[in-house]
């Protein structure tokens, strides 16, 4: 084979051969799966929280496919969504395995109802391309989300759960790249034209009320010392990163006015925003209509 064209072997291969998998295999096949000596229900719940964060934001970012302001950004958002989907598959597989009730990643992603999802509201709110935001709002959300996840995953690298530690070590590099991408856009838009500055500022104000939930330590986290990261300990590191970006962008930090909770409950408790039901309907419709559908 000559190497004039890097993709040559894809087309002259003797077998049916395509670059994109058609039948995904089990996400954690062959991974060290020892379960640490903790309450299994708590560990499963924690993996579900992290898996749902990644899955739901991945779905939101995928909504930009073919709608981004430029082709390169379309590809960028799809790639970021793909990284998050990969993390979600590993985390949901782990959640199902630790739970021990026979649910796999597909059952958890497609067959749970709204109240059973444990993602934070920041991941699910509409930030564009449809009502609820625009590209600037999407970058504001991605900056906050990935800054928070970088802080969380860097600590999870030493988790006593070998799967969480491995997923975190792998995902951290991806999240740091997403964070840099979002941060560079926030600086570019904040420090750009009057219009881009105005929209970037509006985007930050849209997502800021959802910061508070990111730093609320959940009882499940407190019951898993050495395995989970308590959310409250992430605040100062994330604040420092956000302040550095906002300062470079010439944008003021929005006021900390937390979004209202329902009886003190939020996403981690299965209480979601109105937009979430629509997201799930789109994400789950095909699998529920045609169970096991593949293409």
């Amino acid at each position: 084979m000559s190497f004039d064209n890097a993709y040559e072997s894809l087309i002259d291969h003797e077998d049916t051969h395509w670059a994109f998998g058609t039948g995904f295999s089990e996400a954690l096949a062959g991974v060290d799966r020892d379960v640490p000596d903790v309450d299994r229900a708590d560990l499963a719940a924690y993996c579900l929280m992290l898996g749902d964060d990644a899955l739901v934001l991945s779905q939101r970012l995928a909504e930009w496919c073919s709608r981004a302001p430029e082709l390169e950004e379309d590809v960028a958002l799809a790639n970021i969504a793909l990284d998050l989907l990969g993390q979600a598959r590993l985390l949901l597989t782990r959640a199902g395995e630790v739970e021990g009730a026979g649910r796999d990643e597909d059952a958890l992603a497609y067959l749970r109802d709204e109240r059973d999802f444990r993602n934070v509201h920041l991941a699910e709110i509409e930030c564009g391309p449809f009502a609820g935001g625009d590209f600037a709002t999407t970058m504001a959300r991605l900056l906050v989300f990935s800054s928070w996840k970088v802080a969380q995953f860097s600590r999870l690298r030493t988790s006593a759960d070998p799967v969480l530690a491995a997923v975190a070590a792998k995902g951290l590099k991806e999240l740091a790249y997403h964070r840099d991408h979002a941060a560079q856009w926030v600086v570019r838009l904040g420090d750009g034209t009057e219009e881009s500055h105005r929209r970037m500022r509006a985007g930050l104000e849209r997502v800021w009320p959802f910061l508070d939930e990111l730093f609320a330590t959940h009882p499940v986290e407190s019951r898993l010392p050495g395995v989970a990261v308590t959310s409250a300990e992430l605040r100062s590191e994330v604040d420092d990163v956000l302040d550095a970006v906002l300062s470079a962008a010439g944008l003021p930090r929005p006021a900390d006015v937390p979004a209202a909770r329902v009886n003190g409950l939020a996403g981690r408790d299965g209480v979601h925003t109105e937009a979430f039901g629509y997201l799930l309907a789109e994400m789950q419709h095909l699998h529920r209509s045609l169970p096991g559908a593949k293409w």
């Binding site: 670059a19 994109f20 998998g21 990284d83 998050l84």
Partner: peptide, 22 residues
């Protein structure tokens, strides 16, 4: 055979496994 993914969501991983098997 033990392989490691490049990215968490790398869609080529399953193809690698299938190609190795084949």
């Amino acid at each position: 055979v033990t392989i490691t993914p490049t990215y968490s969501g790398c869609p080529a991983l399953d193809e690698m496994g299938a190609d190795l098997r084949r």
